[in-house]
């Protein structure tokens, strides 16, 4: 046990916690926005994968990491747009649409990678760029906190700002109010002239935007290249985090951090001979348990309400 604590209470661990949480957090925020608009986007994994590849390709050809980031975000948002078009215009089932996006991405990225680099495994032959890490003046000199908080990848800081931005968007802007109203009672929204379809388009595009930031981080920060299936379930963890976080911004952010910790711990826990494969399932187990507790309590509440004895 001591050895475990020794691992956890190090600045290295705290630093890596933020590092591994970043992509989960981005995607979870994306899932949050679309879920609040009443439209569940399970294509997160696929959107992240596409944007990760796009970031590598665009940055390799333009030799600019920033243009690469732009390319990543545009392509991820475009994929979300395609999903939105099919589900909102053609009435494709949103879940099957998400399955299609994931299928497209897992093979499509390898297809394009192979065409451009002749390699199906990774983008080593493409000279792609990475986004910079940032030392924060003053903070970096504080003992303990400095090494934890400073020196992160720029998108890690962006992800923290994104939590604030999404919170502000959902709770403090007219658009957020409309998104939440469409998710909760679309008839009410429609009766006062709010276009449900327009809001859902917007929400899906935003979910694609945030997921693609997570994707860009994977190939232009977390790693400095694209490898096939590099998202490795982070999109699903994000959906789990959003569900566990009960669709609130704070809850989603905290659960993302918790699931990030499970990820960061998987190495640490191996010291205790707990296999990484099992630790990797923790977020999903936690989500099923969370979902179950919620469903049971909802059912109880409903039964209680109607079965309560009548006061005469």
């Amino acid at each position: 046990m001591n050895s475990l604590l020794n691992v956890i209470f190090t600045t290295d661990f705290a630093f890596s916690l933020l590092r591994v949480t970043t992509p989960i957090l981005f995607a979870a925020l994306g899932a949050l926005i679309s879920n609040r608009a009443g439209i569940i986007n399970i294509g997160m994994e696929g959107i992240m994968l596409v944007s990760a590849l796009a970031g590598v390709i665009v940055s390799a050809y333009t030799q600019s990491a920033w243009v690469g980031l732009l390319g990543a975000v545009l392509s991820g948002t475009l994929i979300a747009g395609i999903l939105a078009f099919f589900t909102l215009k053609f009435k494709t089932h949103i879940i099957l649409g998400g399955v299609a996006i994931n299928m497209f991405a897992s093979g499509g990225t390898v297809f394009i990678l192979y065409l451009l680099s002749g390699d199906k495994g990774s983008s080593t032959s493409l000279a792609s760029k990475v986004l910079p890490s940032v030392q924060i003046p003053l903070i970096k000199d504080i003992p303990v906190l400095g090494p934890i908080l400073s020196g992160h990848h720029i998108l890690t800081y962006v992800s923290i700002l994104a939590v604030l931005a999404v919170y502000y968007l959902l709770n403090r802007t007219p658009l957020g109010l409309r998104i939440r109203s469409v998710g909760e009672n679309p008839h009410a929204a429609q009766s006062v002239g709010v276009s449900v379809v327009k809001i859902q388009y917007t929400a899906l595009l935003l979910s694609g935007f945030f997921a693609s930031l997570g994707g860009a981080y994977m190939s232009m920060g977390y790693l400095s290249l694209f490898t096939r299936d590099m998202i490795a379930g982070r999109g699903w963890i994000a959906i789990a985090a959003e569900s566990m976080g009960r669709s609130t911004t704070i809850g989603t952010a905290l659960t993302s951090l918790l699931f990030g910790a499970a990820d960061a711990l998987s190495n640490a826990l191996q010291v205790l001979k707990i296999p990484a494969e099992l630790i990797a399932t923790l977020p999903y187990v936690a989500t099923v348990i969370g979902l179950l507790i919620y469903a049971v309590s909802e059912t109880r509440k409903k039964n209680k309400k109607v079965k309560s004895p009548v006061a005469k």
């Binding site: 099919f86 053609f90 494709t92 099957l96 649409g97 399955v99 299609a100 996006i101 299928m103 497209f104 897992s106 093979g107 499509g108 390898v110 297809f111 192979y114 199906k120």
Partner: peptide, 12 residues
């Protein structure tokens, strides 16, 4: 891997 693009189109 072209096939996964085709599969996605079919599902959509």
């Amino acid at each position: 891997e072209m096939i996964s693009i085709i599969q996605a189109v079919i599902i959509l």
